[in-house]
Simulated scan of single mutants.
Amino acid sequence: MLDEQGCPDCKRINEVLSRVGDRWSVLIIISLAQYGTLRFNELKRNLGISQRMLSLTLKELERDGLVNRTYHPTIPPKVEYNLTPLGESFRQPVAALGQWALGNLSTIDAARATYDEATGP
């Protein structure tokens, strides 16, 4: 069993993985990696995410140093987001995760159907 002595940074690792491994963070990173700089509403439209959830997730990604937020004082105000160098370094692991998910969709669908059939409603 891992404890503070065996893994003094396990709690910290959990914090990081909780942030970068959640659904919306991964999808935001993928979108910014694919399209570069995006405005708030472009991200919202592309992802089908609520305004509140997008705002909260972007703030956390910015706090963790993965995303840059650039405010342009125009009328109406313009806010753009892009990946920081740390965020760029996260592209490859996220891309691998996304490719794995895409490559295994039919297998996962079949496993779910088998499970649902065996366990019933």
Rank of each mutant, 00 (worst) to 15 (best):
M1G: 15
M1P: 11
L2I: 13
L2P: 14
D3Y: 10
E4A: 14
E4H: 12
E4W: 12
Q5Y: 11
D9K: 09
C10N: 07
C10T: 03
C10R: 14
K11N: 11
R12V: 12
I13W: 11
I13F: 12
N14V: 07
N14M: 12
E15N: 13
E15H: 12
V16Q: 09
L17F: 05
L17D: 02
V20N: 02
V20P: 02
G21P: 01
G21S: 09
D22S: 12
D22R: 15
D22I: 07
R23D: 11
R23W: 10
R23G: 08
R23F: 12
V26M: 14
L27G: 00
L27W: 10
I28H: 02
I28L: 14
I29N: 01
I30F: 07
S31G: 08
L32D: 01
L32E: 03
L32A: 04
L32Q: 04
Q34A: 15
Y35H: 15
Y35V: 07
Y35G: 03
Y35R: 15
G36K: 06
G36S: 10
G36A: 09
G36E: 04
T37E: 15
R39F: 04
F40I: 08
F40D: 03
E42W: 00
L43S: 03
L43G: 00
K44N: 08
N46V: 08
G48I: 03
S50W: 05
Q51W: 01
M53G: 00
L54D: 03
S55D: 12
S55P: 01
L58M: 03
L58W: 02
E60C: 05
E60N: 10
E62Y: 02
G65C: 06
L66E: 00
V67T: 06
Y71T: 06
H72V: 13
H72S: 11
H72P: 00
P73Y: 06
T74W: 07
T74H: 09
T74C: 09
I75T: 13
P76I: 06
P76N: 04
P77S: 09
V79S: 10
V79D: 09
N82I: 02
N82S: 15
L83N: 03
L83P: 03
T84N: 04
P85Y: 13
P85V: 05
L86T: 09
L86A: 14
G87S: 04
G87F: 01
E88T: 10
F90Q: 06
F90D: 01
R91L: 11
R91I: 15
Q92H: 11
Q92I: 12
P93K: 03
P93C: 02
P93Y: 01
V94G: 01
A96L: 10
L97F: 15
A101D: 07
G103L: 07
N104S: 10
L105R: 13
S106V: 10
T107W: 04
I108Q: 09
I108D: 01
D109K: 15
D109M: 11
D109C: 11
A110N: 10
A110L: 13
A113K: 15
A113D: 14
A113S: 14
T114N: 08
Y115V: 09
D116N: 15
D116P: 00
A118K: 14
T119M: 04
G120K: 03
G120H: 05
G120R: 05
